[in-house]
């Protein structure tokens, strides 16, 4: 299959049409004498045949430079040569692949972070961080903006989900003693990421500028005032004044959409890099 590289200039649709007639995998779809079975569409052989054909088309090659890898050699090369995949090693052990090794928790955290960036940027198109504007924007998102309510809900639940999943991830790592040498520093980086997750969630909490936001942040920052000697000053700097006000809103907004995500991203990249470089801990 993979050696058939002939005539890519004939176009993807024509190739697909030919493939449907030629390849056995497609036969059950439209064969005379037997009903087309939808289940076959989702079967592995059909998907593989379709993917192989699409990946030999001109547009595919223009984007990806190469057809989908078929042989084990091509498969291990793609993780290194592809920009998007090179965060992964070429191969991993079967043990790491097993669901009960990681429960996919760390990966889900990264996924939730991406969801939060995506929905967050879309929310920024509508939201103005001003005390006379923010709440109206929230109401507009709920009632006027197309899919605005869904967008806000997804951002909110992803944020809660991230706090939960980062904690679960940490609990899993502890239970497997996967923080042991040589992974000690990566555990510390993970703790920093947990703290940043909470700070991101906390700064985002204020932005809707409703009663829940104002008073939760008032209670939270009052605790910061308990730090000895510098507490009150620290609280003043955080709030931009003695109480939660416009100055606080813009500070929390800038922290929430620029400073904290950026720093968090840098720590995330370092966290992933260390996972690969450190290797397995002796603990498991």
């Amino acid at each position: 299959m993979s050696t058939d590289q002939a005539a890519p200039e004939r176009g993807v649709w024509r190739r697909l049409f030919q493939a449907i007639r030629k390849t056995g995998a497609y036969q059950s779809l439209g064969q005379a004498g037997g009903p087309a079975r939808l289940s076959r569409v989702f079967s592995g052989s059909f998907c593989r045949a379709l993917a192989a054909d699409v990946s030999r088309s001109v547009p595919w090659k223009a984007v990806f430079n190469r057809p989908l890898p078929q042989t084990p050699k091509e498969q291990s090369e793609i993780a290194i040569s592809s920009f998007w995949l090179h965060i992964h090693p070429a191969t991993i052990t079967r043990r790491s692949l097993k669901f009960s090794t990681t429960y996919g928790l760390g990966g889900l955290c990264a996924g939730l972070f991406m969801m939060l960036v995506g929905t967050g940027v879309l929310l920024m198109f509508y939201y103005v961080p001003a005390t006379d504007h923010a709440y109206k924007d929230m109401v507009d998102l709920q009632h006027v903006v197309s899919l605005g309510r869904l967008l806000r809900n997804m951002h909110r639940w992803s944020a809660h989900g991230l706090v939960v999943f980062v904690s679960l991830h940490m609990f899993r790592v502890f239970m497997q003693k996967a923080f042991k040498a040589p992974r000690q520093l990566n555990w510390v980086v993970g703790v920093i990421l947990l703290v940043f997750t909470m700070m991101l969630s906390f700064t985002g909490y204020l932005l809707p500028w409703d009663q829940l936001a104002l008073w939760a942040v008032t209670v939270g920052t009052n605790m910061a005032g308990a730090i000895p000697i510098v507490g009150e000053k620290f609280r003043f700097v955080l709030l931009g004044g003695p109480t939660v006000d416009q100055a606080t809103l813009i500070r929390f907004y800038v922290l929430h959409v620029v400073v904290l995500p950026l720093v968090m991203f840098i720590f995330m990249v370092y966290h992933f890099w260390r996972v690969r470089k450190d290797g397995f801990s002796g603990g498991a």
Binding site: R152, M154, W157, P208, W209, D210, W215, A216, G220
Partner: peptide
């Protein structure tokens, strides 16, 4: 996330009012 966000709305209370302290005023759950 799509299903949860369709079924459950994120909370939005009334406009922030510094003169009206809710009792109790609670921090975020974490």
């Amino acid at each position: 996330l799509l299903v949860v966000s369709t079924l459950f709305d994120a909370p939005l209370e009334e406009l922030a009012n510094p003169g009206k302290t809710p009792n109790p005023a609670k921090a975020p759950w974490y």
